[in-house]
Design a protein around this nucleic acid. Structure first.
Lengths: 242, 242
DNA sequence: CAGTGGTCTAGACCACCTC
DNA sequence: AGGTGGTCTAGACCACTGT
């Protein structure tokens, strides 16, 4: 994994930053020093630095250098596509996952799903509802739809663990990109059943359509959070170019 | 503006895609063809294609080509840092802006602002509250704090237009990146005064700290939306490398 | 096999910042 | 003037995809 050089350099520098070897406001060694110390060409170093910049670790400044702008309180940036399990590992909370239901259904029962996953009328989908519990209380309800044909062997046991791990490691697919939408809505009856009588009875909903490397949409996910506990953190840049 | 070649190529290709010269699922001409037709080197074409990929226009596939994945319903991606005015122009709604108040205040009256903008106890800030109206109803309340020293000449008139335009074009600063947080909260008294007695009395809040090119934080913004109308759209990629 | 994108190199010129 | 990052080039080799 991670065979290419610029990713190795990125990993190396980003962990230095996270571990505090550089303070916020410090500058990284210059590109010239880095290319010497890593024994690579300048463009290779620059690719690594661009990754650091895109992900909010540094700000490059012409004539000055690469300044560390990393802010530890920002490291729960949900913006980059990660599975629930990956997000969880960054934070300190450990949730239990409980599978509420796993059913095979006709795609055409749920038009938004059928459309988002680009399925014909005969296609089947898995419908998976999971609760994320912390100290015996449900904090998140995840509802997922997957193309049945892609993973006919899905079981409750797999669904209770990391589905992404299953898809990437067992099925050999590569997960690539997603479109997300965040909205707020009143709880449904099912929400109240699973969350309990929480006030206010609103949820924050993160809907995402996740695509594989070859651009096929394979997952339709709605993740409902208790609205009052919800926080989405993002880092974004205005333009990439001049 | 946009002197460099890869940005020109990016602009050219992205507008072709938006205008529908390519359908979703089509492939772009190969890198080889593009470098010949634009008369540039391959790395230059690739920088443009990487921008297209990062911004969700295409998905590059080894051995196949660059496939269009652009989805018109996705073009209101708020994720990339844009001013309210810029976002508004992408959508079709036209809001009126009304300045509710513009006051000079000591930074230390508001500790979160003082900390985020990295100000000392004597520093002053502008506090600006604006309503965004659509058909005579307030839909968004924007509360902003700016460093007073950076723009002592701020007026209600400027605040009623595009502050970003003022900062970038008149003051010559470059806006670079921001950290955002999305949360949900009950309305305050001021919210109810400005929004009116809306049900449910909750707002979706986008808090952002915006930084200039030289990494100085210059704006602290809280944008409150009616919870039931709020929608945040995002495009994100899992990894950039292998 | 030919065509595609992915990585990497060595070198060039430029714009910006600091001294 | 010397150091920094930003852009661009021409060429190389590799891995993947299709026929």
């Amino acid at each position: 994994m991670n065979l290419n050089k610029y990713n190795q350099i990125y990993q190396s520098l980003s962990s230095d930053i996270v571990e505090g070897k550089y303070e916020t406001g410090d500058t990284l060694p210059s590109e010239h020093k880095l290319l010497k110390s890593f024994g690579v060409s300048r463009e290779t170093v620059r690719k690594a630095l661009n990754l650091l910049q895109e992900n909010g670790y540094i700000q490059k400044m012409k004539g000055k250098g690469s300044v560390i702008i990393y802010n530890p309180s920002m490291n729960l940036t949900v913006s980059h596509l990660t599975s629930f399990k990956e997000v969880q590992e960054q934070q300190e909370k450990i949730y239990d996952t409980k599978v509420y239901s796993l059913e095979k259904r006709p795609a055409k029962d749920c038009p938004p799903v059928q459309e988002a996953l680009d399925l014909d009328d005969e296609a089947l989908v898995w419908e998976l509802i999971r609760q994320r519990l912390y100290e015996d209380r449900t904090h998140i309800i995840d509802t997922d739809y997957f193309m049945y044909d892609m993973m006919p062997g899905l079981t409750e046991e797999i669904a209770g663990g990391s589905i992404y791990e299953y898809i990437e490691e067992r099925l050999g697919h590569k997960i690539s990109y997603s479109q997300k939408e965040i909205t707020f809505s009143p709880m449904t009856e099912l929400d109240i059943e699973l969350f309990g009588p929480i006030q206010p009875p609103y949820t924050a909903n993160v809907k995402s359509v996740v695509h594989l490397n070859d651009a096929t949409p394979f997952q339709y996910n709605v993740s409902k959070h208790l609205a009052s506990e919800f926080k989405f953190v993002d880092f974004s840049r205005r333009f990439t170019g001049e």
